[in-house]
Amino acid sequence: MPLNIGCTARPGKSRDNRTGSWRVFYPVFVKDKCTGCGICTLICPEGCIEVKGEKEYVPDLNYCKGCGLCAEECPGDAIMMEKEEK
């Protein structure tokens, strides 16, 4: 049975769905305290923390749901959760 185009989806098409609107708190990364361990980018359930360079981790706020898991687990306490103002 040939698969119709309608039955398939382009890989990673979920990027169309910007889950950042769910957020109540947003993470702020403090570079001075960062140890560069990379645990935040590894554990993030969204996978939205990008490594831009050494000790430079940037969350994509279009997708970050603000769960705070990165802030909780950061060994250097380099991530603060701030209240979103809408």
Partner: peptide, 26 residues
């Protein structure tokens, strides 16, 4: 390869979902 990303953002798991984090690692 820890930098390999095969599970894209924008899925609808709850914030802090253990399963989605696990799937990324898997």
């Amino acid at each position: 390869d820890k930098t390999l990303e095969l599970f894209e953002c924008g899925h609808r798991a709850c914030g802090g979902c253990g399963a989605s984090s696990a799937v990324r690692m898997i």
